[in-house]
Amino acid sequence: MKHFFRRKSSCQVAKDRLKILLISDRVNCSPEMLELIKADIAKVISKYMKIDAENMDIQISAKKGGGGRGSKNPILYANIPILDIHKQ
């Protein structure tokens, strides 16, 4: 009980892990492949502006606005923090 406020419950850990796992399972895209896509996107964007590649976030989601199945077209989300938009 003393760990209650410090540690996530194992139930929450399981849910978080499953969420990420199932997204890549469902679209048949491995986490390694996502990393490659991420690196390539960072390379392209970096030509035009200075971005924070460390903190960019790439996700494949089954449907806009969260999970759920039945959607035929998954969506690729990229959240890329820009450090300097006027890179010359």
Binding site: S9, S10, C11, A14, K15, L18, K19, L22, G67
Partner: peptide
């Protein structure tokens, strides 16, 4: 005690 997913957790997933 938070050590197993509940039925609604599993249904959500």
């Amino acid at each position: 005690r938070g050590d197993m997913m509940s039925a609604s957790d599993v249904v959500d997933i």
